[in-house]
Amino acid sequence: MTETTTATSIQSPGWERVPPRRGRWRWWKILRRNRPAALALVFLLVLIGSALWAPQIAPYDPNAQEYAFLAPPSWAHPLGTDDLSRDLFSRIVYGSRISLFVGITTVLISMVVGVVLGLVAGYYGGWIDNLIMRYIDLQWAFPNFIIAVYLVAVFGTGLSNVIIAVTLAFLDDFARIVRGMVLSLREQEFVLAARAMGASDIRILFRHILPNTLAPVIVQATVSVSYAILAEAGLSFLGLGVKPTTPTWGLILSDARSFFSRGWWLAVFPGLAITLTVLSINFLGDALRDMLDVREHTEERH
């Protein structure tokens, strides 16, 4: 009898489809096959549009007080009004500005800084690697949200401090991924060849090594945006974020706590906005991970 070895690579349903490798329409084809990702993309585009054109889309000024105290959803106020008679739909539309702005800027800065730290640490090694990695490991011992809370504790509350805190809190993910890849890349022939030809360190790092680390970094960045949005919402909810009058999803939810029995819509809709946004980014991140083929490098932490 012949011995059989069982194939043991089993992943989630969407993962089994092998993406088409080439062709102009590759991305389109992938999106057509992956329905959740396509839906997510549409939702995110609508969201970005509503953030950009909030003044045109929102039916009311987000801080204007209408003559409708805690009014349930109706034709005049599609998502109801709050305890200060402000239109909830308008506040949620304006709130998307802060959420998306914080989520995207923090992750962009944190990605650039984290990637450079990872490149330097991995490429040069020695004391500089030691110095950088000791700090990165320290952050790694805690979830990003907790690091953000610690940093707000130090810097103080407010929008700009929240942005600094969230940016710093997400650094370690990028630095670790890039450093790990650089360690193996720097020994490979194409890098040795570049060095033999007299290329400078900067050139080797940015022209030869960096492009090879990009795929996992992009996937991590996508996932990080969703966690950064959650972190901002959480900090705002706790009262550590923006000033109380600014409409943000976390803050509206925080206000909703006083009106559980009389205004369920205040608690339901902003949370739904956060969840749908984060869910969409996660679906998109998952599709990207499949497309770029980088399962094992990224981590699910927030």
Binding site: G250, L253, S261, P270, G271, T275, V278, N282
Partner: peptide, 26 residues
């Protein structure tokens, strides 16, 4: 269950807490 797991990872925990209060307490 796959969908619920995705949802569980995407939902803010404080929002879930609020929803639970509204349903089970209020």
């Amino acid at each position: 269950m796959t969908f619920l797991a995705f949802l569980g990872l995407s939902m803010p925990d404080f929002w879930l807490g609020i929803l639970l209060i509204i349903v089970f307490a209020v």
